[in-house]
Amino acid sequence: MFDLSNLVSTVFHKQEVYEFIVSLIVLSSIIMTGSRRLETIIKLFALQSLGLVIVILISGIARHSHETYMISGITLLGKCILIPWVLSLVLNKVKIRREVETYVALPASMLICCGVAVFVFYITTSYKIASEVMSSSLLSASVSMILIGLFIMMTRKKALTQILGLYVMENGIFALSIDTIYDMPLVVEMGIFLDLLIGAMVMGIYVYRIKQSFDTINVEEMQELKG
């Protein structure tokens, strides 16, 4: 009989493919910090999520876990298709394609995020959270993604980019959960999936409302409420 896990363990014996995908995930978030076009950022987010789906699949095959297949399916549907689709819809509605001004210049923010990633990888190699299946590079990747997501949220002015920063952070947390606890119970994963999807819609609607009320989606224009 064809044994999938055997195949996987031979193919990924040196975990090179796995490491390659993890590094792609980190790289995609770093490129996000350097891109001006909102559409590119959305596409990068979808790509990054696809990388995560592959990572979960590999870990699921290695552990013979059927729940993991379900979870990777849900993630594929939600993060690679539905959420990017919702955000692109919003993008077409508000008709804003580029982010001209940022608080930190884009090349500089890319450099900073590279530095953050290197620092995190340097630090986390000394803390080995036991992970029998995979190497600890995913842990470093997840922490750097959380930080980069926060960085995007802080340095960008467009409301839509802030949402994407939030989802990069969310992807980081998701990667953390794959690395440490493999998966949550299915009920919880489904609930989180629903929350993220509804969250994308709600935030998308608000981006549209901000555009209508303020005629811009720059969050720094919103300064009515103080004190």
């Binding site: 926060l150 949220m153 409301a159 802030q162 939030l166 952070m169 969310e170 947390i173 969250g199 709600v202 935030m203 608000y206 409302r209 901000i210 009320s213 303020f214 969050v219 919103m222 009515e224 409420l225």
Partner: peptide
Amino acid sequence: NKERPVEAAWKYIILCTVGIA
């Protein structure tokens, strides 16, 4: 759905979602 409520709702949703993350 006016300027001030939209601003308040945006702050609310972003801050709380990040916090809960």
